[in-house]
Design a protein around this nucleic acid. Structure first.
Length: 933
RNA sequence: GGGCGAAUAGCUCAGCGGUUCAGAGCGCCUGCCUUACACGCAGGAUGUCGGGGGUUCGAAUCCCUCUUCGCCCACCA
């Protein structure tokens, strides 16, 4: 009847609908004319990197946001989902650097800063919209009219404003500190950008000889010192040239052993530290060491930070290449000797033979020389955490340099308070503790990057008078001496612009209408990886610059992983391209799979090796829905054309059959379940509720059983059509946020549609207590049970599918009688019966069953019956029930249970007992009648 | 080294403070191309709910412990 294909094909439909939605402008917030009572729903999209290609992480993140946003929109809230892209300093610069290397074998230094930045801009302009177009393909209903880029002129102005304000407040400062340095990206990194990964390394124990005798301490015997520094010498592996413990050769000099995971840094040692209370070393404090491989002498100092229990209890101190050593160095005013170049080669501070060696080559050589000199005491395997650049995975080199920092403690204080007092909530809750922990241990944020792509730091230096000026506007001359100035070479951390987007994307610092209307936002949906990078900092910036949290709920979803639970990544090659899925099975299938597989607080596991397996559920469901719709549309001719919103009034309640009342009640349950689950961010539960309703209730039962009415074989066709229309329409609304395309497509085809009406902006179904109908639910459940047991008997006895048989059902209660009689046609049809007798004598021999309320069901089989088998079947069932019954009786005989358990629970249990007794009695009776042993 | 989470059918997971809760989807087995759908329909099998202990009339569910995975944080070099 319809010309729709039997198999749903999303191709064509999705692009057409997406275009129609945007043409209709429905993704832009609907301006509610009531300014006071408005309750806008505002979501800031985590801006993808401008060069990014859509991956499953984006797919997951944006699907979740879209489900929330579409639901809110249908619920009538003024809804803004604001998209944007991030200039992604290091990442983008790296991409273009690789590009120019590939094109012409050049580095950015070859072509110079200005030309390079131009090149990045042209690359970004060329490819920048890709990821956003890809988001459109999965159905994201963002307001594209407000799309921002973090390097846009107005956002850049805002960034500068923030920098200046924080500087003026004393919260931005320039300092000479040890920071995390990526020797490949050639830039400083924040603590968060240096990812700690456990690596299998080694720990080298090196012997440092002492210089002669310390004045006044000449009496110290050399052997004592040696023993002292080698407390566990019995287990020491003696390196080549080493001497046995306790047996120092004549003329052996005093020495001290230090342990290090990074021997190459010993070239930059400026002290050895021991704990002041460590008896083994106390007498050595203040003496000098002749630093091997160098001509330098360094002191032994005492510092509380040294753990006497670890290693030898003596620590080499390299202030320029270790954060802890840097602190020790500051306390003791030690020289800071940087021995590496920015790209992690040894520099001119080291002996000539090491110069120019990469740090790990230098490590090998240092170790080799220690060994040759007999100063390598032992080498142990050692697993420890090492910082890696989050963009290129290069091992980070701690390095001392001049950088800009944000003082974080004052910003963290109110951000922590907002969490503690419950204003800011996290889902799942436990994530909040991670946030709090970070806030409590906050360290200053290194925001300068030695990159070319990003917001240039708004600071100018005058070489003439030495003045440093922080300015909102570009400077051409020194405000103090009018001399020439040069701008700081560095750019700001990318996150220094993204932590501001909740308000800069709305026009801040201008007092725009958007800002007034859409700040603060509502919910933030993101991956836990950027909790500190982005979420925590947005909270701080929101409070600092807007005086209000940027959002009140943070929903942190899981990670997309493969079946080995490895994170999907390009380098592992275990990724899934969401667009492949969209092309093959449609965005709806992708979205359904993602939503239904994603419980709160869990990861999403997909199998990149078997996409069909991974996405079958979504595809199958889309197809099922499509065909249910197809069937309905072919049979809706009799539906009275409902005036929009009024079709509920078309049917009088007394015209409804039991099945009609049942499906309406089930629909109501689905409305409640989906609405409540979505409100609690349990999107998988919401999706499951609609799935169950549409497939198990509507398609499997209701559609099947109204066919005779629709075909005119039975009366009530119009009522059935109206009910089917109504519940299907409701289900489409409930499912729309998860599967927007197919639901919109079908909804548009339903009769009564007005021009310019969209499911995307249609009203979310409202729970209606009049639809609740416990009697219909329990009554129809019996009908389903009756059909089920007869089908079971058919299957068990191998009755041919086409063969019609007879059955007798003898209702055990008046309620059962009402239900069975009301839907006898349904039972006859779905169980493929020739005749159904309700009540009356059971004629002949056959198969028996009993419904849960004790209603006996009999299927005469005549000669086809296998008496032995039937007896065994009944006995098995009876035995099972008797066991249940026995435990139930025991339970109810227990005074403590009866007195302690809530009354309704006890009553419930009594009812069960009664039902089971009835069933057992019926089964026993049937076995007797069959003459079972 | 701290803190936290998870362990339920072959796979991915529900089961949200106790008593028909042992479930869903996918996969598997049997039978059906029944005029919406074989991406389907009907029927079916599969789990000592990670191990051990405890509380209770009753535990997948609460408590303790062990094991195994995972996450966050951390300057034992």
């Amino acid at each position: 009847m319809t010309d729709l294909p039997a198999q749903y094909s999303p191709e064509g439909i999705e692009a057409r609908l997406y275009g129609a939605w945007t043409d209709a402008g429905i993704f832009a917030p609907h301006r509610d004319p009531r300014p006071v009572t408005r309750d806008p729903f505002v979501v800031m999209m985590p801006p993808p990197n401008v060069t990014a290609q859509l991956h499953m992480g984006h797919g997951l993140n944006n699907t979740i946001q879209d489900v929330l946003v579409r639901t809110a929109r249908m619920q009538g809230r003024e809804t803004l989902w604001l998209p944007g892209t991030d200039h992604a300093g290091i990442a983008t610069q790296n991409v273009v650097e690789r590009l120019i290397a590939k094109e012409g074998g050049q580095t950015r230094f070859d072509i110079g800063r200005e030309a390079f930045v131009r090149r990045v801009w042209s690359y970004v302009n060329e490819t920048g919209a890709t990821i956003l177009d890809q988001l459109k393909a999965i159905g994201a209903s963002c307001d594209w009219g407000r799309t921002y880029f973090t390097l846009d002129e107005d956002l850049s102005r805002a960034v500068r404003e923030v920098f200046v304000r924080l500087y003026e407040k004393g919260l931005v400062y320039r300092g000479h500190y040890i920071i995390n340095w990526c020797p490949r990206c050639l830039t400083a990194l924040s603590n968060e950008e240096a990812e700690k990964h456990d690596v299998d390394g080694k720990i080298w124990h090196l012997r440092y000889p002492l210089v002669g005798g310390k004045p006044g301490d000449a009496s110290l015997a050399p052997t004592q010192a040696i023993r002292a520094v080698r407390p566990s010498s019995a287990t020491v592996i003696i390196a080549a040239g080493e001497v046995a413990a306790g047996d120092p050769p004549a003329g052996a000099i005093e020495s001290i052993v230090v342990a290090t995971t990074r021997p190459e840094t010993m070239l930059g040692d400026t002290a050895v530290a021991v704990h002041p209370a460590d008896e083994r070393y106390r007498h050595l404090i203040g003496r000098l060491i002749q630093l091997p491989l160098t001509d330098r002498q360094i002191p032994i100092i005492a510092d509380e930070a040294v753990d006497p229990a670890f290693g030898s209890g003596a620590v080499k101190v390299t202030p320029a290449h270790d954060p802890a050593d840097f602190e020790i160095g500051k306390r003791h005013d030690l020289p800071v000797l940087d021995v590496m170049t920015p790209d992690a080669r040894m520099n001119d501070e080291v002996p000539a033979r090491f110069r120019g060696l990469f740090r790990f080559d230098a490590r090998r050589q240092v170790v080799a020389e220690f060994e040759r000199l007999g100063l390598l005491v032992k080498v142990e395997d050692h697993r420890h955490a090492v910082g890696h650049c989050y963009r290129c995975d290069t091992v980070v080199e701690p390095r001392v340099s001049d950088q800009w920092f944000v003082k974080m403690a004052p910003l963290a204080k109110p951000a922590l308070k907002a969490y503690r007092d419950g204003t800011l909530t996290f889902i799942p809750e436990r994530r909040g503790e991670e946030y709090a922990q970070w806030m409590e241990n906050i360290r200053d944020w290194c925001i300068s990057r030695q990159l070319w792509w990003g917001h240039r730091i708004p600071v100018w230096y005058c070489d003439g008078c030495g003045e440093m000026t922080v300015s909102r506007t570009d400077l051409s001359a020194c405000p103090k001496c009018r001399g020439p100035v040069r701008q700081d070479e560095d750019v700001l951390d990318t996150w220094f612009s993204s932590w501001l987007v909740p308000f800069t994307s709305l026009g801040w610092p201008e007092k725009t209408d958007d800002l007034k209307r859409y700040y603060p936002g509502t919910t933030l949906v993101t991956a836990p990886e950027i909790l500190f990078f982005w979420v925590a900092r947005m909270v701080m910036a929101g409070i600092e610059f807007m005086g209000q949290l940027p959002f009140t709920t943070v929903y942190l979803h899981g990670t997309v992983r493969d079946t080995q639970h490895r994170k999907m990544s390009k380098s592992l090659g275990n990724g899934i391209d969401p667009l492949d899925v969209v092309r093959t099975w449609g965005a709806d299938a992708l979205r359904y799979t993602v939503v239904s597989g994603m419980a709160v607080g869990t990861d999403l596991i997909l199998d990149p090796a078997d996409l069909e397996l991974s996405f079958a559920a979504g595809r199958n469901f889309a197809n099922k829905l499509w065909n249910a719709g197809r069937f309905l549309l072919s049979n809706l001719d009799g539906v009275p054309r409902p005036v929009a919103g009024k079709h509920r009034n078309v049917v009088r309640k007394d015209e409804l059959t039991l099945a009609d009342r049942w499906i309406i009640a089930r629909c109501e349950e689905a409305v409640v379940a989906a609405t409540e689950a979505t409100a609690k961010y349990r999107l998988n539960d919401a999706a499951a509720a609609v799935y169950r309703f549409l497939w198990s209730d509507f398609a499997d039962w209701y559609v099947e059983l109204i066919k005779p009415r629709l075909y005119g074989d039975r009366p009530g066709g119009d009522v059935a059509r109206a009910v089917a229309y109504r519940v299907f329409d409701t289900a489409l609304r409930l499912l729309h946020p998860v599967m927007p395309f197919i639901t919109e497509e079908l909804w548009q085809k339903l009769p009564g549609r007005q021009a310019g009406e969209w499911l995307a902006t249609a009203a979310w179904p409202v729970s209606d207590s009049r639809a609740r109908d416990a009697a219909a639910l329990s009554g129809f459940a019996l009908v389903q049970e009756a059909v089920g047991v007869i089908r079971q008997i058919r299957s068990e006895y191998g009755i041919e599918p086409g063969k019609q048989i007879a059955a007798t059902i003898t209702p055990a209660t008046p309620g059962a009688r009402t239900a069975i009689e009301a839907e006898s046609g349904t039972i006859t049809r779905l169980a493929k019966l020739a005749t159904l007798a309700v009540g009356g004598a059971e004629q002949g021999v056959g198969a028996h069953a009993v419904l849960s309320d004790g209603t006996p069901v009999f299927v005469p089989l005549g000669s086809a019956i296998d008496l032995g088998r039937e007896c065994a079947r009944l006995l098995e069932e009876e035995t099972r029930l008797r066991q249940l019954l026995a435990s139930q009786e025991k339970k109810l005989a227990n005074e403590q249970f009866v007195s302690r358990a809530p009354a309704n629970v006890v009553e419930n249990e009594r009812a069960k007992l009664a039902d089971w007794s009835k069933q057992v009695a019926v089964l026993g009776d049937k076995r007797k009648r069959l003459g079972c042993g």
